[in-house]
Design a protein around this nucleic acid. Structure first.
Lengths: 213, 213
DNA sequence: TTAAAATTCACCCACCTGGGGTATAGTTCA
DNA sequence: TGAACTATACCCCAGGTGGGTGAATTTTAA
């Protein structure tokens, strides 16, 4: 029994190309090729796909919202995102929406077919670059058991750093923890030295990324 | 120039097998094959690898701790974990330790070679099952799908914001993207309005937390 | 108990920043 | 074809920030 694949892709050339690839491959068949996500439910019901090849940029709801919607309604359908976007935000949102794989438009037809079969079998094909971005993001968000490089901030310093992360300015921090403005500045300067940074932005970025606070 | 690969694997048969595969492949060479991670630094210095094929179960410090150590000391070395373990905890720890890829022992020699080349080129090969586990874990740990407000930053604004996140000051940003200092300031002010913030730290914090860039 | 941190406070100075303007050229879209 | 937006650029000004230095007091660790 061939795997039923639905295609959402607004570019006609690509859509036809994907359709041809699917139908030309043993074990795959295209059960629907659509240019937009209007009437999404109707299209899904009609195509009854097991795998969806989903473009992100599309008329109607974009591919990520469509993914979220489909996964919620038909959790058994596997969705393979295929797009030109390689920015972290898109990757992140697509994964959170429940996509099973994420490949770039530059992927070869052979690899595309492989990927469709892989998602169908429960795997998660990703283009190499995407995979490395996912790992990077993962490292960022993981509840760090990683021994955070020890900058040996004192507790007061940590306290002040976390207030800085809130975006509170130094004068207000002083008021908040009942010490003088100049003292706050002393602490801040020491924090910069310990973190090897030279500005509030850098300190904040480092604090958040490395969960120092 | 062949990619220098070091192998850490306690099973002699497998170690010899991997070594043979590397040396038998155009573009790869095994610059060291070790059964344990004792004297790790010495072994790394001796082999001077660009990619390490790392087993998890090993005498001495286990492969994950070894990964953590090597990445910290030689961040440019790419580490490809190869193991029989497919449990979430191991996967999770390996990624957090800084591994670039994670493949199973069941991987074919051809795929193994591909994977080594992929990590060397900055990609992150993962066995299909591992990849799907990573996505699952990712969904678990991802900061709760706060409906990412759309701040509709222009691409220039995003570019500048991301430079700010790097901690680069406005003058240097101007130099870097070849526009005047005052123009950068104009952009920055507009960014602040769009993000409803009033300082660089706040903007950076918001950008990182909500992955706006 | 003595040395080393941590915490507190102050002053100086140059420069950066945030907020307020204004203005022009180019693009896009209705 | 205008309106809206974007990118570019400049001005002013008050106040914030980063860096340096110095010093007193308390807490912690050796």
């Amino acid at each position: 029994m061939a795997i039923r694949v639905a295609i959402f892709e607004d570019n006609k050339l690509m859509r036809n190309g994907f359709e041809a690839i699917c139908n030309g491959t043993e074990g795959l068949m295209c059960s629907g090729a659509f240019a937009d996500s209007f009437d999404l439910d109707f299209k899904i019901k009609k195509a009854a796909p097991q795998v969806i090849l989903m473009d992100i940029e599309m008329p109607g709801t974009d591919g990520i919202a469509a993914t979220r919607h489909v996964i919620k309604k038909w959790p058994e359908i596997k969705i393979l995102i295929q797009t030109v976007f390689e920015d972290d935000d898109k990757i992140f949102k697509a994964i959170c929406a429940g996509a099973s794989g994420y490949i770039l438009k530059s992927t070869s037809p052979a690899r595309l077919v492989e990927s469709i079969i892989e998602v169908y079998n429960g795997g998660s094909p990703m283009s190499p670059y995407i995979a490395s971005r996912v790992l990077k993001l993962f490292q960022q968000f993981a509840p760090t058991e990683q021994q955070n490089e020890d900058y040996s901030l004192s507790s007061r310093e940590k306290e002040i750093l976390s207030l800085m992360v809130e975006g509170i300015n130094l004068q207000l921090i002083a008021d908040k923890i009942f010490i003088s403005y100049e003292t706050v500045r002393s602490h801040v300067k020491r924090i910069y030295k310990k973190l090897h940074v030279a500005s509030a932005s850098e300190a904040v970025a480092k604090a958040i990324r490395q969960r120092i606070i």
